[in-house]
Amino acid sequence: MVQGKDLDPAAIEVTLTVRLIAMPQSHAVISCLHANLAALEAVLADIDQQGIATITCLGDLVGYGPQPNEVVDLVRQRAIPTCQGCWDEDIIEGLNACDCSYPSQLAERRGHLAHQWTAEQLSEESKAFLASLPMSLRRDRLLFVHGSPNSQHEYLLPDMDAFAALERVESAGAETLFCGHTHRPYVRELREGSIRVRQMSGEPAGVAEAEDRELRLPLRRIINAGSVGEPRHGNTNPTYVIHDEDIGAVEIRELPYEVERTCSAIVDAGLPPIFAWRLRHGFEYAERADDASHVCER
């Protein structure tokens, strides 16, 4: 019960009514946790504070960060439906990606270091959990993936060719595609998409007749949740999204967390101190590949 002589009771009532109607259909999407426990705890606390019960995780629970088991445990404890990220896949199947995944030999070496450290730290239980994660999750016309419906390693960048972006959503049979992997949150609306099909008919000896058919596609959306554990959008704050299925509203939320707690844990764990420096300054642990659209096919 909210009390206060300066508050307008009518205003409170309106606010509460809106929340009561909107909240049941709101769900949160988190991605790219990267073994950053402090960031994950801050994000989950923020989600709880808003009374949102449904959370979906888009993978990359581990990699680079200092608390892989703790993060896996917390996701399991909260029973958060999760799909498998590229790091989750690599850590249980071994590094399959070739050099093309890294923009430099230095980044590659750091990536391998982080991979080796994480593989040594992860308990068999955690590995089994990561191995059990599905490539994608579907809820009605909502599809949840880590990178793209094609691969956990494919980046769906906000400036990706519109046709290619539409193809990824449409061919997966989704209205709204939730993804992560880029570590930069965004909402992209694909409006007025259409596919034109030319159908040829006619007798072999006769004149072929062409019939053009145009299929209008309804609005499609790509929603990128950004990253909880390794933000790459310009500062150190974790990001995630809240989506309201009923009214289609999307909120990209960004909040501070105890970044120094994670930085200390990185150093204490014996991981390269440069990881802590980069995280503290809002830089990715190892730079992203120059050609982000490239998908390693090894």
């Binding site: 923009p103 430099s104 030999q105 230095l106 980044a107 440069i274 420096w277 980069r278 300054h281 730079e287």
Partner: peptide, 18 residues
């Protein structure tokens, strides 16, 4: 042997106080 991209990353970190 250092590839130019690695040197560039290292330089960025060095001059920014890493």
């Amino acid at each position: 042997v250092w590839d130019p991209a690695s040197l560039s990353s290292f330089w960025f970190e060095l001059v920014n106080g890493a």
